[in-house]
């Protein structure tokens, strides 16, 4: 009861923090999609490059987020953004690369070779094949990668409160520093709920973006 009372009392703040959180993750994963999808497509042309890129992306994900923030402080201080919004977005951008690049790469690579041959055989150029056949068919899997990135990074972004990026993590960090379990738990629950709600919303978006005629494939992705 005490928790609900606290949440209701601070509803305005809670909403502000939530919007802040969504904005941070949204901008970061949005940018990550804009970079990750083209990278994922580009590396399908070269297997060795693909291995190297995926390897690097995997290593980035193994760096603990708190350490990554720490590393970025001196580097970004040079341009005056050692803490706050910029390093938080950069961290999430980096963490998002692996699921997005890997899913894009896998999806494009797994397009049925018969379809690729049919597309070549009727005289589509490489670009036309990508735009008209390969990318539409890959969308469910690419979107699954984006969803993974978003859910993963809603958690990571909670830690970014420690470098002053804001978001729902501020409840958690204050709860710890002030030994206030109410703030801590409200923050944690809010982060979890946000992750679940966003995941389902993106699933709905994924279904809308999936070309009709391959809806069966979409429900299993």
């Amino acid at each position: 009861m005490e928790l609900i009372q606290y949440a209701l009392d601070n509803l305005g703040l809670l909403l502000d923090r939530t919007i802040e959180h969504i904005a941070l993750v949204g901008v970061a994963v949005g940018l990550a999609t804009l970079t990750g999808v083209p990278i994922g497509i580009a590396i399908t042309k070269n297997e060795r490059l693909a291995k190297a890129v995926l390897y690097v992306a995997s290593i980035i994900v193994t760096i603990p987020s708190i350490a990554l923030f720490g590393i970025m402080i001196p580097i970004l201080s040079i341009i005056g953004h050692g803490i706050g919004y910029v390093p938080a977005v950069i961290a999430v951008l980096l963490y998002s690369q692996l699921p997005i690049i890997r899913n894009t790469y896998t999806a494009i690579n797994n397009v049925d070779p018969a379809l690729r041959e049919a597309a070549r055989g009727i005289g589509m150029s490489q670009n036309q094949r990508l735009r008209q056949v390969e990318i539409p068919l890959a969308i469910p899997i690419i979107m699954a990668g984006v969803r993974t990135a978003v859910v993963l990074n809603i958690g990571v972004m909670a830690i970014a409160a420690y470098i002053g990026a804001g978001g729902l993590g501020t409840f958690i960090s204050r709860g710890i520093s002030q030994s206030d379990p109410r703030q801590l738990i409200v923050g944690a629950v809010a982060v979890s709920l946000l992750a679940i709600i966003v995941d389902y919303s993106l699933l709905a978006l994924q279904k809308r973006l999936t070309p009709r005629g391959m809806e069966r494939a979409a429900t299993t992705a």
Binding site: I122, G123, P136
Partner: peptide, 23 residues
Amino acid sequence: DTQELRRNLGYVIQQIGLFPNMT
């Protein structure tokens, strides 16, 4: 040109290869 050549040759394959995302 390869693409031009292919557009002038009908091509049917065993796996059919209809594009599932198109009507």
